[in-house]
Design a protein around this nucleic acid. Structure first.
Lengths: 221, 221
DNA sequence: CTATCATTCAAGTCATCGCTTGAATGATCT
DNA sequence: AGATCATTCAAGCGATGACTTGAATGATAG
């Protein structure tokens, strides 16, 4: 019978799915989507211990989702390819379509208020060209420095209040963060709209923007 | 901090991935991709006990991948939507690209021999129209009866030998089965080619063919 | 060559998963 | 209404997963 190889195949597919079945690993993949990182940097960003982080990364590697290389005494991990991003995105889409709980959480992020449609990356690119939009990068400063949309302001949620006065009241603001898994942009948009500003979210985040082949500015240093 | 809702979201996404992380559930999804089924039918096809099958189905339902309805005293399960199929397909693609083990298993299925490129569904449709191809459905008779490509012959792997004489030696044969997770078509093609016939695999299986909106013939009864 | 550092391994603990068995539910059919 | 059937629930068992702690590896720097 075909049972033997068939089960073996299913187990391999299940292995990939299992790699995506822990929140900690999804968090790691989200970080890696922004660029290659060392183990310690990933541990800090995700709040995992070094050892635990290393174990999760090895599990991701076993599933073929990430690869690693040595750089001096550090080990640098990176996504194997863009298909991994697609897989994460589809996972999110299916969850959003089918799980009421997700809907509820996303509602809560917007403060229960109106949730304007996100801006497509093509739209943002066009408007950037004509200078008719203010772009806001809602990620920590180090991630902003490692690559951001040209012309974007940088402010974490905690710093939002400080830059509020510098924004024209009628300006159109587009906020983005790490990607579709990241909630910073959702929260920033909700906060800005509570202040009466015309803010919307970018569809996806920096990884998707980069994947589209659009320009990314990297700070020197 | 954003930790609370963010973790909650990641846990929801992880729930969907976890649903795909057991071979038994992938097997169930493959069956459901062919059409809605009752619990007992699924249990028989997958070789699970009824109770176990029911538990797996409930886990799939919790993840939003399947829905159920009552029909008399039976409960009928079905895929929630075609996105689930996409997710399974992407899972398979990532596994095939990144896992050497998968490559090895698929090689083994073809008897280590040459593995001709699969025929696209559009190609098969065109060739069916001009009658220049023999289509072979390599699934059990009941699944064939529940829906198959018009004009297709039906033969399980065990029955292949019997229909060999009826095939013209120079005929072009296209074999298909349940879908990309199913290994019947792989094995049938390998067997036919060992007999010197010109056989290839259809890309995807019946569910994908149906999803394309192409004709499916259902036996009366 | 030795010391140092980042990473990985190994052992242990607690929780969860997958499967089995046997009983309970809930809708139909007579 | 009661009997019957498919399905689901509940409890129990062995195995696996996630996380912690502490030691081992392996490459670099002095």
């Amino acid at each position: 019978m075909s049972i033997c190889p068939k089960l073996a195949l299913l187990e391999e597919y299940a292995l990939v799915a299992r790699a995506l079945s822990a929140p900690a690993r999804l968090s790691l993949l989200e970080q890696l989507a922004q660029g290659e990182r060392g183990v310690e940097a990933l541990a800090v960003k995700t709040g995992l211990t070094i050892a635990n982080c290393s174990q999760h990364l090895q599990q991701l590697r076993r599933a073929g989702l990430v690869t690693s290389r040595r750089d001096g005494k550090a080990v640098i991990y990176r996504l194997t390819d863009a298909k991994t991003l697609e897989l994460m995105d589809l996972l999110r889409i299916v969850a959003e379509r089918n799980l009421a709980q997700v809907e509820r959480i996303l509602q809560g992020l917007s403060g229960g208020a109106d949730a304007p449609e996100p801006v497509s990356r093509a739209d943002l690119a066009a408007r950037l060209a004509e200078g008719s939009v203010t772009v806001l990068d809602v990620r920590p400063a180090d991630e902003y420095a490692a690559g951001h949309i040209p012309g974007a302001l940088n402010a974490t949620l905690a710093q939002l209040e400080q830059i509020l006065p510098t924004l024209a009241p009628d300006a159109e603001i587009v906020a983005y963060c790490r990607g579709p898994y990241c909630v910073y942009a959702h929260q920033a948009v909700a906060a800005l709209r509570r202040h009466g500003l015309n803010a919307r979210r970018l569809e996806g985040g920096l990884p998707e923007w980069r994947e589209d082949g659009r320009p990314v500015l990297i700070d020197a240093g």
